[in-house]
Simulated assay, not measured.
Amino acid sequence: MREIARLFGNRAAAYASFRPQYPSALFDWLAANSPGQERALDIACGNGQASRPLLGRFHQVLACDGSLEQLRAAADLAGIDCFAADAEALPLGEASLDLIVVAQALHWFATPTFFAETRRLLRPGGLFCAWCYGLLRIEPGLDEALDHFYWHTLGGYWPSGRASIDAGYADIRPPFARIAVPDFAIELEWDLQQLLGYLSTWSAVQKLQQASGRNPLDELQPRLAALWGDGQQKRFIRWPLHFVAGHPS
């Protein structure tokens, strides 16, 4: 966990600027399926992408991350109670939460110890919901270029937990019955520079650059630019979301 926190902490500012936002309907669903709306916790909150939408839906929103740099880089966490902590040992009381969410991070710490911690923290009937998104989809030519970059250029540089994202979290088996979540997806329009900014936040990009001294995006950019056309043009981008959800308590 320390290595992961350091890796994302190194690019905290880019992470805050370029990570896509989650659909509002997801947070409506989370509130509606929690036993109450008193207290929610976002674990591995990063820059607060999943924390901020919980405001207004829950009386108190807490957010924690293993990286102080991530918390410091967040543009706006006003109204959210933030703290740095290990996901497997959280300084909160038993049966004190209605909802726990983990956005794009469960694969780093999906251990028996972590799931025992969620059971300790959630009230009876409390909801646990984690989600991830894998490769974005744009259009066939760009998708092919991004797939090659992901699987071949970066293939040996992804941290081991990334395989769970590739599996859509199907390989994570929590010690509770999973419940179905609607088919939510991130959908937005970006220009080419926004896409490249997002790609710069990938952990494998950082690891390859550290290992070789070269930025792999310098090689990818000309190919994407040729396929994109006018770099200022906005293109529709979609990331399907994959879930692990249930009531551990």
Rank of each mutant, 00 (worst) to 15 (best):
R162Y: 13
Y198H: 15
T201K: 02
E38F: 06
S203E: 09
D171P: 08
A75T: 13
P140S: 05
F109L: 11
L122F: 10
S249V: 14
A50V: 11
P35N: 10
G56L: 05
D143R: 06
E88K: 02
R57P: 07
H152C: 13
N10F: 04
P240A: 15
N33R: 09
C129T: 02
L199F: 04
L30P: 06
W158V: 10
A103S: 11
A78C: 12
A25K: 14
P222G: 10
L227R: 12
Y15M: 10
P248I: 02
I100M: 00
S212R: 14
E69W: 00
L188Q: 11
A87V: 08
V205M: 07
A32D: 11
L142H: 00
G46S: 04
G9P: 03
A170Q: 15
A73Q: 04
V205I: 14
D218R: 10
R137A: 15
A74F: 07
Y169V: 15
A180V: 15
R162T: 14
R72D: 15
L92M: 08
L127I: 15
M1S: 13
T113R: 14
E69F: 07
Q70N: 11
D65V: 12
F109N: 06
L241C: 07
I165F: 04
V102T: 10
R214K: 13
G126S: 10
A63Q: 05
N10W: 04
S67V: 05
G56T: 02
A32I: 07
T113F: 05
H247I: 15
G246E: 06
F114G: 03
R238A: 10
I80A: 12
G156A: 12
A84H: 00
L7M: 10
I237S: 08
W158C: 14
P175H: 03
W228R: 03
I138V: 02
F83L: 08
N10T: 10
L208D: 07
G56K: 09
A16I: 08
R57N: 06
V181W: 07
L192W: 01
L30V: 13
F149W: 09
G9N: 02
P182K: 02
E38D: 13
I100K: 01
P174R: 00
V181S: 07
G48V: 02
H242R: 15
L71V: 08
G231D: 11
E117W: 03
L208P: 08
A87G: 01
R19G: 06
T113G: 09
D81P: 09
L127F: 01
Q49T: 11
L106Q: 06
Q104F: 00
W228Q: 09
T113W: 01
A32Y: 01
L192Q: 04
H247R: 15
S17W: 02
D42E: 13
L136N: 07
R19P: 03
S67Y: 00
D86V: 04
E117N: 14
S51C: 05
I237G: 06
I186M: 12
L99T: 03
R137S: 15
A177D: 13
A50L: 11
P175L: 04
F18N: 09
T111Q: 02
G134D: 13
A73P: 07
F176S: 14
W158Y: 13
G66T: 03
P23L: 03
L220T: 06
R238Y: 06
W158R: 13
W151H: 11
W151Y: 08
T201P: 01
W108Q: 07
W151K: 12
S51E: 07
D147L: 04
